[in-house]
């Protein structure tokens, strides 16, 4: 279960241009300070409740705040205002490469990534063979990742990321990877991942993907929820109105 109550997220803007001790000290002496805009409000008073077992799609234009709200739901961002309650272990799939190390072998990288995704050592040993096989890397699995082609790298990351069995899955644009041969396997694997008896929040620009897996869709715009309901209805509304809206 995930519950957001009146959550706002303000990104602090000053470090962007060098928060340095020098400028901090100089500001002490600068009496005539005209404060430039210090925060960017990425989420504005958002309230949302996702119950156990729900499969929710998250849609919106670029810059609407989707990645931000996913991070709030994953417990990565603390709200600047409001409160979040998360019950259950979250495995965020917000990128495919965190923890991947070029100097380690493919096999070691699988272990590392699973460790960061919260899998126990026992569970890692159980899954590693299957992941290695699925990635179709063959002997390369024992070589350092820096020897891999981009496709191999992505297949490895994909195979690893989709092997987890989280209580709550928060996924940002699940990456499909690989050539034509791999694509069909990948599709099946994603379907398995998204079909489990778990709470899922999936952000995507692919309405087909969302329609297939999510019964409920939340539409985010300028940091606010402007629609939350049955997926067919909200998606239809989005497809009609969104192309004309302002980012």
């Amino acid at each position: 279960m995930i519950e957001l109550k009146n959550v706002s997220i303000d990104y602090p803007l000053d470090p962007a241009d060098g928060a340095s001790l020098k400028s901090a000290l100089l500001n002490v002496f600068n009496r005539n300070r005209k404060q430039p805009k210090s925060h960017y409000r990425a989420l504005d008073d958002v309230s949302l409740r996702i119950n156990k077992g729900e499969r929710v799609g998250l849609i919106g234009l670029n810059g609407a705040g989707k990645s931000t709200i996913l991070r709030v739901m994953s417990g990565i961002f603390q709200p600047s205002h409001g409160s979040v309650q998360i019950v259950g272990r979250v495995s965020p799939l917000l990128d495919f490469a965190t923890g991947l190390e070029l100097h380690h072998t493919g096999l070691e990288n699988i272990r590392i990534r699973l460790m960061f995704l919260g899998e126990s050592p026992a569970s890692i040993e159980r899954k590693i063979g299957d992941i290695a096989e699925f990635s179709e890397l063959g002997e390369f699995i024992h070589l350092p990742a820096r020897t891999y082609s981009t496709g191999m790298f992505m297949r490895l990351a994909f195979a690893t990321s989709t092997a987890i069995n989280p209580e709550i899955l928060i996924a940002d644009e699940v990456v499909g990877a690989g050539d034509a041969q791999f694509a069909e396997k990948a599709r099946q694997r994603i379907e398995e991942l998204l079909s489990g008896e778990r709470t899922t929040v999936l952000s995507s620009h692919s309405m087909d993907l969302i329609r297939r897996f999510c019964h409920r869709v939340v539409w985010l715009h300028h940091g606010r929820i402007i629609a939350d309901g049955d997926s067919d209805a909200v998606i239809k509304d989005y497809e009609a109105r969104a192309p004309l809206m302002e980012r």
Binding site: R71, I76, P92, D95, T98, F116
Partner: peptide, 9 residues
């Protein structure tokens, strides 16, 4: 910084 932004560790 990668971990801090991508995982709730």
């Amino acid at each position: 910084h990668g971990y801090l932004k991508q995982l709730p560790l």
